[in-house]
Every structure is written in C-alpha cells, then in structure tokens.
Write a protein that binds this DNA or RNA. Sequence first.
DNA 1: GATACCTGATTGACACGTCAATGTTAGGCG
DNA 2: CGCCTAACATTGACGTGTCAATCAGGTATC
Lengths: 160, 160
Amino acid sequence: MSQRKGRSALTRTELDSWRVFIETTEDLRTALAGRLQAESGISVGDYRVLLELSEAPGRRLRSSHLADAIGWERSRLSHHLGRMEKRGLLTRDTAAGDNRGAEAVLTDEGHDALRRSSVPHFHAIRELFIDALTPGQLAAARDIAETLRDHLAGLKGPGD
Amino acid sequence: MSQRKGRSALTRTELDSWRVFIETTEDLRTALAGRLQAESGISVGDYRVLLELSEAPGRRLRSSHLADAIGWERSRLSHHLGRMEKRGLLTRDTAAGDNRGAEAVLTDEGHDALRRSSVPHFHAIRELFIDALTPGQLAAARDIAETLRDHLAGLKGPGD
DNA sequence: GATACCTGATTGACACGTCAATGTTAGGCG
DNA sequence: CGCCTAACATTGACGTGTCAATCAGGTATC
C-alpha cells in the first residue's frame, strides 16, 4: 500500500500479459472483420453505419449525429460514407433546415446488405468470442473492458 | 450440459459484453498508438520491427524471419520496411547466400529511435493498461486472452 | 448589411493493411 | 544443360484511418 503506481519498470509477467492481450484482441478483430467481409461483402465499419442508419427514423441521419452515435471523427465518417455511397449502400442529401448539414440515407440495397449480414455476423461473434469463454470469463471480460473504458475516459478528458 | 453451443441468438448481455470488449480494446490500441506516435514519432508497427531487429545478431534479419517473428504477412512487412527505409530507420540488403532473400538492417538512427521510444512506451502501457486493472483483473485478462488465442488458433488451422 | 466568427462537412496527403499479380532466384530432374 | 516448380520478396490497387486545411452556410455584432 505504500507503493505509488506507475513508477517501476514492467515485470516480465506484466509485459507478457500486455502482449498476449493486445495481440489477441487484435487477432480477434481481424478474424471478425475477415468473416464479415467474406460472408457478406461488407466491412465492420460498413456494418456499424448500416445498423445505425437502419434504426433511425426514416432510415436517415445527420452526419454529425451518426458520427457521435458510433464514436467516429467526422473526417473518418465522411470518407467512409463516400465509399459506401459509391457502392450504392446509401445516398447523401443536404439536411432539411440547415444547408450546411448532410444527411445519410439508407438505400434498399444498403438495408438488404445489413439484413443479409446480421445473422452470419452474430454467428461469428458467438463462435469466435462468446463460445470460446466460460460464463465466468465472459463476465470477467466485460468487467475488465468496462474498467479499461472508464480508465481511458478518465485519462482523456477529465477537464473537458 | 445438454445444450449445444452456438445455436441460439445472442442474449442482450452477451451482445453488450461483446461490444464493450471489442470497442474498448480498439480504443486502447488507438490510445497506445497515439501516445507512441506523439511522444516518439514512430508507429506501433515501427516499434515492433525496430525491437525485433535490435535483438537480432548484427541487427539484421531476413525478411521472412522477421515476418514470422512478428506474425505479419510478407506483403505487409515489405510495405512497412519500404516506409521505414525511406525514413532512414533501416536499410535493405540482399541476403548472403541466397540472392532471392532480403535482409533488413537497423541503422544507427533506427536504433536511436527505439532507445528513445522504449521508456515512454512502457510507461504508456503501464498507465493505460496495467495500472488500470487490479492484479486479479490483470491475471484474468491474461487468462481470457490466452483462451481466445488458443480458440482462434484451433478454428483457423486444425488441419494445417 | 458588412464583418467576423462559429459550425458542419469535405478534401488531400499520407500511413497502414489485405489481396492478387508479378518478378527473380534456387533446386530438382529429365 | 534446360525446363519446371517452389520459395522469397515486391508491387499495385484499393479500403481504411488520422491530421491539417479548406469550404460553405449560419449567427452575432456593430
């Protein structure tokens, strides 16, 4: 209790824990993305955007709201919407009432893509993640993730 | 024990656990990468390559060995080495004894970059990850990561 | 109603990652 | 030797992500 945190070098165990954790979560991410792409022809980013739009009234959302909803920077979203628009998954309109704004509108094709991808995607999540862990591990994973998330949020903007 | 896994739809809790886990680990990754870039001007990929080369005899490694050591595809490594070479962190030579092969050789500048970045990088790992968790959580995180890693390996190539 | 400022969004440049295609050299084998 | 194939590595095209710069439309202030 008399030791301050963050002072000493990482122990071997700490470093090993870090490496297996960060590398495996990255592998998990890559595996999931690969499945989604192979089975449904869309990326994880596409999926996130499609899902958010499909749940919005009129299947349309202001770019800024969409960006906030999925936690992306505007520029990232703008690039992504451009690519999705080019593939016919959505269209873009100027927002009613504010000519600065843009609204992304889900096309039927985009909606179909989401519908086709959902079941395989959930299946992959179950297979790669949920079923790999015991109920206790799954609960612990959630607890750890929430702890880390709160910790990161505390570091990033306690004064914002 | 009579229920087969992977049959039913994801529960609300399972989906929430998945989302907080995958999003937070991604945020963690992004935060670490940002720190390394801001503090030392190198990327996580750069760091990985520099570390591996610095530990190799003569500070040089065959591309294929390097790729295996850090678990990257050859093409990815080739692109990355090209970028690092352009910045003077390493040079490339044809391998002694096999003119097909290429060796990456750490420059003094590359070695300095690694030396400068190590302490801040370890510090960031401690601050963002190790110190955020209790010892129990850290052990659980490692256990979960190892379980997931083994599970992924089992899915990918049981017959390879 | 002109100026200055703020907000919403896009763009360009560049780093990163994957996949498919392309050299290039080594080795095996007639 | 001459051919075939495998191994090593690079390249090009394209999707993805970040940062800084830009542009266009609103808002306030005088």
